[in-house]
Design a protein around this nucleic acid. Structure first.
Length: 700
DNA sequence: GAGCACTGC
């Protein structure tokens, strides 16, 4: 602890904090800011008047940093020093230093908007610009402005643009503490490679043959590329002449690897053996691999972004920012001086790369965020004018208002409704929280709770799709229910009910190719949601999972109706001549049901006329993921509501769209997005469908 | 008939 750089600055930091309500502290990796800052303030007596709260964007970080601070202060974890993350509150009345995720802090602020149990709030890792931290930045600005506020706010980050944040907080002081990184030599390519996969392969082999020992970390964009590169590397290394160089083990590292595979990167290599780790940007911040001396940086990252005019997400490979490039390079200098091979010229770095990554708030659907802000009842505030460090586009905010209106969370004047208030209490996206409320009315709450919980975990349910698990899964999947033809939401419900009937047998999950961790997570979420619903209802509700099979043997009418209420903004209509769909409520998009869906066509081969979808995402083409068949009778009133919608009124009477602005997310890395042009009037649509049909026939 | 980076309440 004594040799951490930040310790030398203790007096100066404390002096600055005493004189200013907000201080920005820039500390590079290894400065000790996450563990030392809270202790310094504690020593200076800031814990006498309240708690010191430190937010983290990630759960593991909150836990591990709290554990270390408790150790350094020699107190049991959960007493003076504690942490709070979802499903796990290890704090007590004695807790004075509390580490928590930014999401938990937002929940606390909902219950207690003044956050007055805190004397100091530290927003750590603010440079990552997580959606939650960005909202907290805006809230902190309001809190310190209160006349009698004693609250101290510290914003700490590795590479944040200090001047920008300082300006945001009325020119607060910015302090810089050095880090403890070793120098990293940056080597640029002469030009962009034709195939960054081949170039990575060649560079890695060069390093392995010529350079002294030390592990290699390669940044790729996704699982596919990682698997290809891993097998090519294995092949090449095997063919190297025996004894010509040291041994090597190749390790893939990405989010869909099972945890036991991920932790392999933490065990040191056998002697005289080099590790080559091929990773996604999970290794940029989330996981720190020791022993890395060489970094190979492709310069790309796979990023998810939202288009508010089409309601569509896309997953694009885009250039990284300068901040990300430097973060990647820094991974080579943790244990000794290192080298970073950038597979792009320095002109690309300087001229093409954005300075900072586009913050998440400008890449996401904001319905949940806007609902949250509305429910805080911030005095005299127009949501479209909320003071964000980087404001989302007005189009994105208006899209959020539209969504909220269609699911009754706000009224036609943009004011939050009683329904909306209850929805904000639930840790779910608005479509699902609205579904729960409707389900409660229709008497199918327990089923809806299960669906909501399953959807919250969906991506962690199925194991990674590597070649050999694929066959195994297909084989075992015959035993899993199929949604009785109604679609994926129903299938998810049936799967959980099956598991429930086995008394939550772990082997059943394994036998059916479901990730045990994911299923346990579903159980936890479901329990949490049930408790919140009971609390809101101020009395017992029927939240028990059905045990009897026959209860599920009807057509899930009420559940599908409840889902339709919640997904009023995510409906699609089938095309006349084929099984493609056209989205309703947005600029219409022609989309396909994802092939993995269990939705069944009827005897004529036709899919249902109307479906709701959980997600619309463009990968190789635009796909509806997780769909459920709905009745036209439920859809008609929603379409009427869409047609009557008045965005100007919703935004509080003022039209915020300025003429001539570039529109949505104009600062996003550019990528051509192909949007199918669909005529709006039904007659035209039929005509267009016929033309496409004939065109396709003609081709054959 | 395709397959998705990473977080979080």
């Amino acid at each position: 602890m004594a040799n951490l750089p930040i310790v030398q600055f203790e007096e100066k930091i404390l002096e600055t904090v005493e004189q200013h309500p907000v201080v920005v502290l820039i500390g590079e990796t290894g400065s000790g800011k996450s563990t030392q800052l809270s202790q310094m303030l504690h020593r200076r007596g800031y814990t006498k008047s309240g708690i010191i709260g430190v937010t983290q964007p990630r759960r593991v970080a909150a836990v591990s940093v709290a554990r270390r601070v408790a150790q350094e202060l020699d107190v049991p974890l959960g007493e003076e020093v504690g942490y709070a993350i979802r499903f796990e509150d290890r704090t007590s009345e004695r807790t004075r230093i509390k580490y928590l995720t930014d999401g938990v802090m937002l929940r606390e602020s909902l219950a207690n908007p003044e956050l007055n149990e805190y004397s100091v709030i530290i927003l750590d890792e603010a440079h990552e610009r997580s959606l939650n931290t960005d909202i907290l930045l805006g809230l902190m600005k309001r809190l310190v402005k209160r006349p009698a506020s004693n609250l101290k706010v510290l914003i700490t980050s590795a590479t944040l643009d200090g001047d920008k944040v300082s300006k945001f907080f009325s020119n607060c002081p910015v302090m810089t503490v050095p880090g403890k990184l070793y120098p990293v030599e940056i080597l640029y390519s002469k030009e962009r490679p034709k195939s960054y996969l081949e170039t990575s392969l060649k560079t890695a082999l060069d390093i392995h043959i010529k350079e002294p020992e030390g592990d290699v970390l390669i940044f790729m964009t996704g699982q596919d590329d990682i698997e290809k590169l891993v097998s090519k590397l294995e092949e090449k290394i095997r063919s190297l002449e025996e004894g010509s160089c040291m041994d090597a083990i190749i390790l893939p590292l990405h989010g869909s690897l099972p945890p036991e595979m991920q932790v392999r990167v933490f065990s040191p290599p056998p002697p005289n053996c080099r590790r080559i780790i091929v990773a996604t940007n999970i290794a940029e911040t989330s996981l720190t691999v020791d022993g890395v001396v060489y970094v190979i940086d492709s310069g790309y990252v796979k990023q998810r972004q939202y288009n508010p005019s089409t309601g569509m997400y896309s997953l694009d490979v885009v250039q990284i920012s300068k901040v990300q490039a430097n973060q990647r390079a820094g991974r080579a200098g943790r244990t000794r001086p290192g080298k970073c091979y950038r597979l792009y010229p320095s002109t690309v770095y300087h001229d093409d790369f954005l300075d900072v990554t586009v913050p998440e708030i400008q890449r996401s659907s904001l319905a949940g965020t806007v609902l949250y802000l509305k429910s805080l009842d911030l005095a005299d505030i127009d949501i479209l004018k909320f003071d964000f460090l980087d404001s989302p586009s007005s189009e994105s905010l208006e899209d959020a208002l539209k969504q909220l209106y269609l699911i009754d969370a706000i009224d036609e004047n943009g004011l939050i409704t009683k329904v909306g208030r209850t929805m904000a209490e639930l840790p779910l996206e608005p479509s699902l929280s609205r579904t729960l409320m409707a389900a409660n009315e229709y008497g199918c709450l327990s089923q809806a709770l299960t669906v909501a919980a399953m959807l919250s975990a969906e991506t962690t349910l199925l194991p990674g799709r590597s070649k050999n698990t694929e066959k195994k899964r297909k084989h075992n999947h015959v035993d899993l229910p199929d949604g009785s033809g109604w679609g994926d939401h129903i299938q998810l419900l049936q799967i959980f009910e099956c598991w429930h009937r086995t008394n939550y047998d772990i082997d059943w999950c394994k036998d059916n190719g479901l990730q045990v961790r994911g299923m346990k997570f579903v159980k936890d979420v479901r329990k949490q949601l049930s408790q919140i619903m009971q609390k809101i209802a101020k009395g017992p509700l029927d939240v028990e999972t059905s045990r009897r099979w026959e209860e599920s043997q009807h057509n899930y009418l009420n559940l599908r109706k409840a889902l339709c209420t919640g997904y009023a903004n995510q409906l699609a209509e089938r095309m006349v001549y084929h099984n493609g769909y056209r989205t309703l409520g947005f600029k219409p998009q022609v989309v396909q049901v994802h092939p993995s869906s269990v939705l069944k066509p009827d005897d004529d081969g036709k899919l249902p006329e109307y479906v709701l979808y959980h997600e619309l995402i463009a990968t190789s083409r635009p796909y509806l993921r997780s769909v459920c068949s709905v009745d036209i009778k439920w859809v008609t009133p929603i379409i009427e509501k869409v047609n009557k919608l008045n965005v100007i009124k919703l935004s509080g009477g003022i039209n915020h769209i300025e003429e001539g602005t570039e529109g949505i997310n104009s600062n996003l890395p550019k990528k051509e997005v192909v949007v199918a042009g669909v005529p709006d009037k039904p007659d035209d649509r039929i005509q267009a469908a016929r033309e496409r049909f004939l065109a396709r026939k003609g081709k054959k």
